[in-house]
Design a protein around this nucleic acid. Structure first.
Lengths: 120, 120
DNA sequence: TTTAGTGTATTAGTATTCTAGTACAATATT
DNA sequence: AATATTGTACTAGAATACTAATACACTAAA
């Protein structure tokens, strides 16, 4: 289980900080498929926020099909996340790349400049 | 000059729609480095929004160093790159690329993923 | 120097977002 | 069946975001 931390000064909503930490936990392999997350109350007490704040984070991740929840049982890392996230992964990669190229192009760099730099 | 359009039903703030269209204009090559954008008033009248809404979009892009503005003169696509030395250009490219790869890696993408996406 | 044209700053009203309090509903355990 | 544990729904207050109205400041041209 990963350790959750909230930074009140970050200027990022609590529920979003929770989302980010879960996503990073998955990306880094510290949260495994099928693993149960803390209960909404448990994490809420731990982080000293309202249980709805945790619930909101879990719900958004459920919509994104990262988590799956069962009322009365708990919330888990989606077992089908690997198959289901292929499309999402592709979209994310495109979004990140577009952001990157936009900035780079505004500096006059070409696509070839970027590819060469990446190959270093 | 590109044509700006606002969709009131998009659920995306007007100023952000303006930002996105400018960024896409640059990425697609329809906005050239050094080119002047519409004036805040001109675009505001054209889009039937307040001039501050346009100003907000321009200001955010200036912070991102995509645009540069001169009070009393106008707003332009950043031409900073032209004034940079070869060494500075190289450093800038490295900095931008590092930022890009850091974000991409946190999502589990590999260097090859990025290169392939760029080649599309 | 005056004037027209440019971006900036201040203020305010409205809408939305964020968080919390509290009650409800489903499931698992005893 | 009763109880504990889990997530959900509804409501409300505070903070923030969005947009606009209006006045100010800088630059270029007449």
């Amino acid at each position: 289980m990963i350790k959750f931390v909230l930074d009140p000064k970050a200027g990022i909503p609590y529920y979003r900080q929770i989302i980010d930490q879960i996503k990073f936990g998955i990306a880094s392999g510290r949260l495994k498929v099928g693993e149960q997350l803390p209960t909404v109350r448990g994490l809420a007490v731990d982080l000293k926020v309202n249980l709805n704040t945790v619930s909101k984070a879990y719900k958004e991740l459920e919509i994104q099909q990262v988590l799956e929840t069962q009322q009365g049982t708990g919330t888990f890392i989606n077992r089908t996340v690997i198959e289901l996230s292929d499309k999402e992964r592709k979209q994310k990669l495109q979004a990140i790349t577009q952001e990157f190229t936009t900035i780079a192009f505004s500096y006059g760099f070409t696509k070839e400049d970027l590819i060469n730099e990446l190959k270093n």
